[in-house]
C-alpha cells in the first residue's frame, strides 16, 4: 500500500502544541530519535510523519512531497497557493494574531488612520518612506494599502523583529503576537484596528494529491474522524445521575423537556436494582451529555426534576454519523 507523508512543524510556537493536540485526538506521534525528521502515528499505520519548519510544511505539501500537513493560517495567508487546500481551519490551538505594532513612545498613534498620517509626515518632512519590519510582506503590503498607507518600505527581517525600531532599521513592525508580552518588553504597542489576521493551527492538503491518490484521501478521512470526534467531544460533559420516577419513559420525558438536558438524542435511562422505592417511584440512573460551558445550568435543571448524586466527566470523543469536515473536503474536491 502506498504510504502517505504527513508534514508536522518541527519547531516554533505550534510544534509542541501540535504533538499534544494529536495525542488528545488519539493520534500519538512517535519520533524515535529527536534528531531525526521522520516519525509515525501508530493509530494510522499508513502515515509517515515528516517534521519540518512551519513554512516548509506548506512548501512540502504544495510540491506534493507531503500530501497532508499542519501549519498556521498566517502561513497559508502569506504563502498559500492553488495547490493547497485548507482541510480544517479551526483546530483550536496555536492562536495568535498578525498585528501592526508601533513604538509605545508614539503616544499620538492609536489606530491605522493615525499611522496613515504619520506615513505622510515621514514622506513630506523626512522625504522617506515609513519602514516596516516583517516576515509577512504580502499580507502587510495589502493591509497597509487597504488602510490608506502607501508610502512605506518593507524591511525583510528574520527573527527578533520586535527590536527593529529600537535598533533603528525599521520604524514599526508587523509580527505575530500570542500574549503581547514580547511586544511590551520591546516597548511596542499593537494598534487596535491593526489586526491583519487571527491565526491558529490548520490542517492542509495537496489538492491534486487528494484527488488522485485514494490512500491520501483515506488517511485524511481517518485523521478527520479523530480530529472532529475529539474537538466535538471537548465541548461536551457527560452527566450521570440518580433520579426517581414512575417509569423510565416518565424520567426520560422530564429530563428531555429542557432542550439543554436532552443530550444528542435523549437521555439513556436504566433502573437501579436494589434501590428502595419511595413516594416518587422507583430509582433510575440516567446518562446524557451537555455542552461543557452550560454544565451548571444543566445541573440546576436536572435537580429541578429530581436528579441527585450527579457525577460529571469529560467526553473524549463525539462521533456523528460521519465526519462533517471530511464531508466538506469531499465536496470541495468535487
Amino acid at each position: 500500500m502506498n504510504r502517505v507523508m504527513f508534514a508536522l512543524p518541527s519547531k516554533g510556537a505550534i510544534a509542541e502544541p501540535t504533538m499534544s493536540f494529536l495525542q488528545d485526538c488519539g493520534l500519538r506521534v512517535d519520533k524515535p530519535n529527536p534528531r531525526q525528521y521522520i516519525g509515525t502515528i501508530p493509530a494510522i499505520p499508513t502515515i509517515d510523519v515528516l517534521f519540518q519548519r512551519v513554512i516548509d510544511v506548506l512548501y512540502k505539501v504544495a510540491d506534493g512531497t507531503a500530501k497532508l500537513g499542519i501549519t498556521g493560517l498566517d502561513v497559508i495567508a502569506e504563502y498559500g497557493s492553488e495547490d493547497i487546500i485548507v482541510i480544517h481551519d479551526n483546530l483550536n490551538y496555536g492562536h495568535c494574531k498578525l498585528v501592526v505594532a508601533v513604538p509605545e513612545a508614539w503616544i499620538d498613534v492609536e489606530n491605522m488612520i493615525d499611522l496613515a498620517e504619520v506615513a505622510l509626515d515621514f514622506r513630506e518632512a523626512k522625504m522617506r518612506n515609513l519602514k516596516v519590519a516583517t516576515t509577512y510582506p504580502n499580507q502587510t503590503r495589502e493591509f497597509l494599502h487597504r488602510n490608506g498607507i502607501h508610502h512605506f518600505s518593507i524591511v525583510a527581517a528574520e527573527g527578533a523583529i520586535e527590536a527593529a525600531p529600537t535598533i533603528g532599521y525599521a520604524d514599526i513592525v508587523v509580527d505575530l503576537v500570542q500574549t503581547g508580552t514580547t511586544l511590551r518588553e520591546n516597548h511596542l504597542k499593537p494598534l487596535l484596528d491593526g489586526v491583519i489576521i487571527n491565526s491558529q493551527a490548520c490542517l492542509i492538503g495537496n489538492r491534486r494529491m487528494l484527488k488522485e491518490h485514494p490512500e491520501a484521501l483515506q488517511a485524511a478521512r481517518i485523521l478527520l474522524e479523530h480530529i472532529d470526534g475529539a474537538l466535538l467531544g471537548k465541548t461536551y460533559t457527560q452527566i450521570t445521575m440518580n433520579i426517581t420516577g414512575i417509569s423510565a419513559e416518565d424520567i426520560g420525558r422530564k429530563i428531555a423537556a429542557n432542550p439543554l438536558t436532552r443530550g444528542l438524542q435523549g437521555p439513556t435511562v436504566a433502573p437501579i436494582f436494589g434501590a428502595e422505592k419511595n413516594d416518587s417511584g422507583q430509582w433510575f440512573t440516567a446518562t446524557l451529555i451537555v455542552p461543557g460551558k452550560l454544565l451548571l445550568t444543566a445541573i440546576e435543571s436536572l435537580r429541578a426534576v429530581g436528579a441527585t448524586h450527579m457525577s460529571a466527566v469529560p467526553v473524549r470523543y463525539v462521533f456523528l454519523h460521519e465526519s462533517p469536515t471530511f464531508a466538506q473536503l469531499q465536496a470541495a474536491l468535487g
Binding site: 513604538p103 508614539w106 499620538d108 498620517e117 533603528g168 520604524d171
Partner: peptide, 17 residues
C-alpha cells in the same frame, strides 16, 4: 528618536490632532 520620530515629531502631531 524612536521608530524614526523625535519627541518633537510626536508631540507636534499630537497637538495637531
Amino acid at each position: 528618536p524612536v521608530g524614526g520620530r523625535s519627541r518633537d515629531d510626536i508631540l507636534e502631531r499630537l497637538l495637531r490632532k
